[in-house]
Design a protein around this nucleic acid. Sequence first.
DNA 1: ACGTCTTTGATGGTCGCAGACAAACTTATA
DNA 2: TATAAGTTTGTCTGCGACCATCAAAGACGT
Lengths: 337, 337
Amino acid sequence: MSATIKDVALRAGVSTTTVSHVLNKTRFVAKATQERVLQAAEELNYAPSAVARSLKVKNTKSLGMLVTTTLNPFFAELVNEVEKCCYREGYNLVLCNTDGELEKTNSYLRMLTQKRVDGILVMCSAYDDSLFSSLIGQRNLPMVVMDWGPSDDYVDRIQDNSVKGAHLAIQHLIEQGHKRIAYIGGPLEKLPAKQRLDGFIEAMEQANLVVQDDWVIESDFEFEGGKLGMRQLLSCASLPSAVFIGNDAMAMGAMSEAQLSGIKIPQQLSVIGYDNCLYSAYFSPPLTTINQPKERLAELAISTMIERIENPRQEGKMIMLEPNLVVRSSVAAVSTI
Amino acid sequence: MSATIKDVALRAGVSTTTVSHVLNKTRFVAKATQERVLQAAEELNYAPSAVARSLKVKNTKSLGMLVTTTLNPFFAELVNEVEKCCYREGYNLVLCNTDGELEKTNSYLRMLTQKRVDGILVMCSAYDDSLFSSLIGQRNLPMVVMDWGPSDDYVDRIQDNSVKGAHLAIQHLIEQGHKRIAYIGGPLEKLPAKQRLDGFIEAMEQANLVVQDDWVIESDFEFEGGKLGMRQLLSCASLPSAVFIGNDAMAMGAMSEAQLSGIKIPQQLSVIGYDNCLYSAYFSPPLTTINQPKERLAELAISTMIERIENPRQEGKMIMLEPNLVVRSSVAAVSTI
DNA sequence: ACGTCTTTGATGGTCGCAGACAAACTTATA
DNA sequence: TATAAGTTTGTCTGCGACCATCAAAGACGT
């Protein structure tokens, strides 16, 4: 099939060791020899087998990434950032969508272990015990989890401070004069959803605002979930003047639904989202939202990962990222109503 | 580090052969022995090294996917489908974003070759000669290109019939009574962009409609490109009653821009997109668009790939997929203007 | 008791590469 | 000239699994 190091050695009239050394620049080789080797490699279209190499050096320069679904734009953007970092660091990224299924997760975990990836990035946002125990089995494998639950000390975690983010959102609404505020969020078994709800309630209470029961809606984190959530909200006896929505995808669905019902945003209803996905600047109207620093999240994840690969068995770190407010046009000051 | 087949053999009191045989079910082994082996493997948390295995059996059960950027929702959805198929077939997917950069592309191509992936999926939509020649160098490696140009006979291609798609779009507009139709599309060095423009012009001519020069706008395929394209369109002396936009992402940007200028969609301007991404059902108003059968595209790509892996060096296939119209609410009948 | 089958287990070579160890060959120094 | 020191390259083993080949143990017939 493809040429081996032996073929190159033969053609260059040197030993395989020499070939290996010039290709890896791992020891001095005379200029002339070097050129002979390089030329032979070129002529044979030689591509060193990373699999053989990996077997020997015991690393694969590839990382697995477990993510619920890249269909969600937030995850898509994050994966994109992660991939960028991997590339920069010379790693390959093996993409594994779990679709939230335990079986798929386990199966991928097994595959990744067997493929001997150097580490696994986890972004499944549900803290599911069985998932957790699956992961425990691989304890020896470096692992960093992003936006996810269980605190343990052998794995690095890096999270968005969603409680803070929710505060930011509510504060902004309040500053704009809103008092009647609703919340449509993700499923509570996902940590970010829970934290955002907690933050919402906390912020409301701090401002001495009541949170009306039927204005707190739990949905999923998808477009359709936002649509359904809004439909539910619109069926309430009285309507809020503003709604904080758990992520931008839901905000999109929700806005679409509201506008279909003839509600003007932001004149009749202000909307604030969470995540600051690329496309939220292109909503009608452009979405005011809480920015999660995705690039930074990815960078930290990868650098933490690499650090742990190079220096295993250190204590697990926990890094918290701070979100910030991005003001666009989906929130109106209450006086304009 | 992690246990080897030897460790398992030792612990089970058998030879490595036996372990291999029970694990791979490749020959009959006494029940009792089998159980001892299984238990030993379990206790040691043994995961057979796929890298060692690959070295021997000469395949890696992983595929590389070269894609311009998964930031674009269409690509994201497609990658998602591809991943699903890979999983089903027992393959891993190595995600490679080229960002349209030749250097990154080449670098990834090299990595993938060295990692000995079993095949490469290409979705870069630009037919760039230098990219092309890079790929040629890997001719031995199974390759299927989706939505891309050069016809050659050693690579499988599978494309959306974008000319047809454009026809569908224009036909629909015409049926709704539109005659003054504009086009905002992607960069012409990308095949789909070119095909959609060709289809647009063709369809217009067939209907004896004039295509006004300043109503044909070339942009990029991104949100921002749509926004800019619409801005340019709005600066024209006269405005069209409808616009066909090269993909849904641009349609989103364009609609946002138009609505920001106070233009009502679809009452004052009808919009039709292309791709039928997940989120286009949640635009305000929901987007009428041309559906590209993404799931089918992915399935065909993977099945073609696997066929070629199992049966190499056959003639390259070319498969054409048919798009279809999805009517939602962004196109109004012209009488309602 | 011996040979023949059947069932099960052991051995060693192989895949492509890296690296420890060491050899060959050159130049400097006594 | 012999020896040390330095320069450049080569030999050989093993990473972890698979597999073809061989070998042992037991069952059975004659």
